[in-house]
Design a protein around this nucleic acid. Structure first.
Lengths: 354, 354
DNA sequence: CTGTTAGCGCTTTCAT
DNA sequence: ATGAAAGCGCTAACAG
């Protein structure tokens, strides 16, 4: 009996199919051609059915789907990529060990799973050359989209590579502050920094200092200085300590800074990791928080809640950011920018300090 | 002038090449065939050169490499995968938001970069069905290896899928405790738990309790109970509180447990996340740590050092684990198991409690 | 609505 | 040592 000729006889079809199944699955992986053969149709019909099923009769559709299912067919992503089909979404991160990035990546993955697309996280380090070659390699896998989490402004080289990807038909979404020319997800730091600034100045403190790092945090520092200015504090008089994205460094820098000049009663660190480093140093130096110096951070990472005292900060919804990024990556005509609100969280590091 | 006929004339070759370069790179990505054409050799020779270069004359090798470089050739991973070549390494994680997993994944990626292989992290959730289909999809990309970080013992279904991957020529390495039948990286929890147990009992405490979760932490609990037994404490009398991998739950469970029975002066939580939840609850209840109850955890995540008091724990070298996993993934004949030592870290949550 | 056919870019026998 | 040629598994014209 030719395979696929008997299709409408219930049990016997089932049995016949089982024989075919055994014959096929014995050795190599099941291919689309196998499905086609067993279903008694052409590979094009099979392909059509498996990709949305436009222009296929219902009966064939059903038969093909049944066979594919029975054979345990899994489409070959390499072949599809080679043929130009775009499925996967790659998320590029500098380093997944930080909470905000990990939270965003996890959220992207969850959203992707819900949409049935394969999401994968690729760490690309902080070195531009390495990044470019990573992106070049990934391009050849023809992903549907590349989400760049936390670009720093090396958009010169990396951006060109991403643009080439877009020119080929790929989608790019960037996350974070710097404008990249690609659809972007960011948090409304302007508003929240100001909110935080007003809370801090509302404590009655008038001698603020800022701890920040070189990178993508600059805008928070500037927003805070602007807020200070609005409240009569000359930004030029505000000490700004710049460190290298690391709580230990923040700690050491704070120690040096406080020792050199005790002229501050308030420290804003542009992210929580830095703020915790600051608190660490102050505590060790016997400076009371918030009585002597109030401290605030930004991001609301889990440690901030558990710190002693709790760290006042701006809570960002990283999960929402991840979902937004995936949605934009899947959208053929996404908004240029999705800006998410933040939320002021007041804890012991500033509370009751008035 | 036929392309590639002039090879040893320095400047003129360079110019000629540049012309070709412009012609080629104008539009679509550069293919191996482009390189072959410009270099004036066959695609097979080009392929040979680009893959180790066996059986190719030195002069051709040089020429091909120069052309590939000049054209900015990037090999197409999809095509290579389709052809059966294995390059990438996928790391499967349940959830990259936990420190141990993130640290391992980052370390795998760093090691991979050093080896020139593309490493990518794929979150596969905790649902077996989803995991299986993820693995099936990834198999079609013909990765060189799949590293499974923190398998829970659902090796039944997932293991079969991984085995199929191995049968096709792939490599599998698992990380974590449960024996999987694949080469495995783990930490020597047996030894360190005993070390920790002796430290704890050395404080003079005799009424221990254990907080743990359902999953892959069972062996730590058992090792600790065995240690207790060796020191004259009947394991059957040791309360074991089981929670759901979450510090909040650990916190609530602890509150209930302590309220219901104040018959413990020592708590071992089988990981730090749980231990921090325990400490949180105790602190809120006004129980002094370590005076009333000493607390210890396992893993040494960053929060543990910064907690108040610092958490006594077993420090695991997750970066080393990641490196070991990658080395085993790349090794054609890897050891069945790589077991890493841990280190006892005594902090305020037990120190000076005697 | 369905089938035939021509590759996508690469590796790898098999000749030479 | 080199090249010609046959596909890997799939999709998308193009015919019917």
């Amino acid at each position: 009996m030719a395979p696929g000729t008997v299709v409408h006889e219930g049990e016997s079809v089932r049995l016949e199919l089982r024989k075919e199944v055994l014959a096929v699955t014995a050795s190599r992986p099941v291919t689309l051609a196998d499905v086609a053969r067993v279903a008694g149709v052409s590979t094009s019909t099979t392909s059509r059915v498996l990709n949305g099923g436009a222009n296929v009769s219902a009966s064939l559709r059903l038969r093909v789907l049944a066979v594919a299912d029975a054979l345990g067919y899994v489409s070959n992503m390499a072949a599809q990529a080679l043929r130009g089909r775009r499925r996967a979404v790659f998320t590029l991160v500098p380093d997944a060990r930080t909470f905000p990035i990990a939270a965003q990546a996890a959220s992207i993955e969850e959203a992707a799973r819900a949409e049935g697309v394969l999401a994968s996280v690729v760490m690309i380090g902080r070195d531009t050359t390495a990044r470019v070659s990573r992106i070049q390699a990934l391009r050849t896998l023809k992903p549907h989209a590349i989400i760049v989490s936390y670009t720093e402004p090396e958009v010169a080289t990396v951006g060109a590579e991403l643009q080439r990807f877009v020119d080929e038909g790929g989608h790019v979404v960037t996350m974070g502050e710097p404008k990249t020319g690609f659809p972007r997800v960011c948090h409304d730091d302007q508003t929240t920094v100001r909110l935080l600034g007003e809370h801090l100045l509302g404590l009655g403190r008038r001698r603020p200092a800022i701890v920040t790092d070189h990178g993508a945090l600059r805008h928070r520092q500037e927003a805070m200085l602007a807020c200070f200015a609005d409240h009569g504090i000359d930004p030029a008089t505000v000490p700004v300590v710049t460190v290298e994205r690391d709580s230990i460094q923040a700690s050491q820098a704070t120690r040096r800074f406080i020792t050199a000049s005790d002229s501050c009663d308030l420290i804003y660190a542009t992210n929580d990791v830095l703020a915790l480093g600051v608190m660490d140093a102050l505590t060790e130096m016997g400076v009371r928080i918030p009585e002597d110096i109030a401290v605030a951070g930004h991001d609301d990472i889990p440690l901030s809640r558990d710190a002693t005292p709790g760290l006042t900060t701006v809570a960002l919804d990283f999960a929402a950011a991840g979902r937004a990024a995936l949605a934009m990556a899947l959208d053929d005509d996404p908004p240029a920018i999705t800006c998410l609100a933040g939320r002021l969280v007041i804890r012991g590091s500033t509370a009751g300090a008035g």
